[in-house]
Amino acid sequence: MSLVATFFVFLTLSACSTSSNTMSNEAGDSATSNENLEQLFWDRLEEAKSKFTQADVDFMTGMIGHHAQALIMSEMAPKNGASSEIQVLTARIINAQKDEIATMQNWLKERGQTVPEVHIDGTMLMIHGGGDHSMHMPGMLTQEQLDELRDARGLEYDKLFLKYMIQHHQGAVGMVKTLFETDGAGQDELAFKVANDIQVDQLTEIARMELMLKARTN
């Protein structure tokens, strides 16, 4: 709650008044010089970085580890003889989640938080600086499940990958739901966007994977 309190203090100082509308005839080129306006731009970005809570930090930290495990699961695909359809899926998951990890790391760094670093050795995932939040997230596979996936080949890998990735994605969607149900969370614009995009993309992918799994089980 202390962070929420800080957040209110910042807003009272903010130039962005809450009293509805104002009028002006000239934009940008009045008394405010370019330099001042640019300064205001960076100041406001800085100020916006104070609108977060511990729940947002925990979400980002946890999701980095969560995403990192998705990379491990996906990077096995070519070697494990996944079908080409699964390989396209895994290629996209890798591309998307690597970029999202970078975004989340940057979000934490810019807010002065510990940035979890991801180290992958085979199926072993090590997160430095993530505390407990990075390894025990909803939907994450156990080491036994990861090793089981590592040893699966061809169709068996495809099916197991789909089963586990659906579980994994559902965990991520659940994390977003939990975040949004937490008082004070998701008020930061970028945190909301990251969480919401994850929710939208992974829901779309879950539905796609469920049918892919069905096609392979029948």
Partner: peptide, 21 residues
């Protein structure tokens, strides 16, 4: 081939799910 895995074969296309939004 190492850097980019192949695309699905056409006959491998499976039914797609309905979107939620």
């Amino acid at each position: 081939a190492q850097q980019f895995p192949p695309r699905p074969a056409r006959e491998d296309a499976s039914p797609r799910p309905g979107p939620t939004q």
